[in-house]
């Protein structure tokens, strides 16, 4: 499950970078965000997974698309012909390197102990997140509010027309 989601996420990120049309680039990003949300869900971080879909893939992407359409960005000109032989060589080299590193890693017993699923489920819920956010990190929450206000004020300050 992890490898499926991770592969799709990486492929979608690449697609976002390569796409010549801003709209399709944004849609690739949506796919990427969905995969990341899936990763969160497999890690039992249900709250963050849902928020990732609602906020990032939902609200922020809608804003992205609006901005792209308002600015009326046209697609970039097409690429020059890519030399596929060098791309293939790079891929083979990368595969060999990762194989070697994997063997070396096995030699040194570089395995990590996974965290138990129960422990992850315990900290991943909205209740436990809220609890820690309003006790241990209560002050940090206020400062994060100041950070967001500063960003908003700054954006207006940088983007406003001069009115005098």
């Amino acid at each position: 499950m992890f490898f499926l989601l991770a592969t799709v996420a990486v492929a979608a990120a690449l697609g976002m970078l390569i796409a010549r049309n801003p709209v399709s680039s944004a849609l690739w990003l949506v796919l990427n965000l969905f995969c990341i949300a899936g990763l969160y869900l497999t890690l039992n971080a249900s709250f963050i997974g849902v928020i990732q879909i609602l906020v990032y893939a939902g609200a922020i992407m809608v804003l992205f698309l609006f901005v792209i359409m308002l600015l009326n960005l046209s697609a970039l000109p097409g690429l020059e012909e890519i030399e596929w032989s060098s791309v293939g060589g790079f891929a083979v080299g990368l595969a060999l390197l990762s194989q070697l590193l994997y063997v070396v890693a096995l030699q040194f017993e570089l395995g990590m102990d996974p965290v138990g699923a129960e422990a992850a489920a315990e900290v991943g819920s909205a209740a436990s997140l809220g609890e820690i956010l309003f006790t241990r990190y209560a002050l940090h929450l206020q400062v994060a509010g100041i950070l967001l206000l500063a960003a908003t004020v700054g954006a207006v300050l940088l983007a406003q027309r001069r009115f005098q």
């Binding site: 940090h140 994060a144 950070l147 500063a150 960003a151 300050l157």
Partner: peptide, 15 residues
Amino acid sequence: SIFLGLETMSVCLYV
């Protein structure tokens, strides 16, 4: 705390 402080500081400075 380190990360939040650093970001609050930096975002204001960018502006």
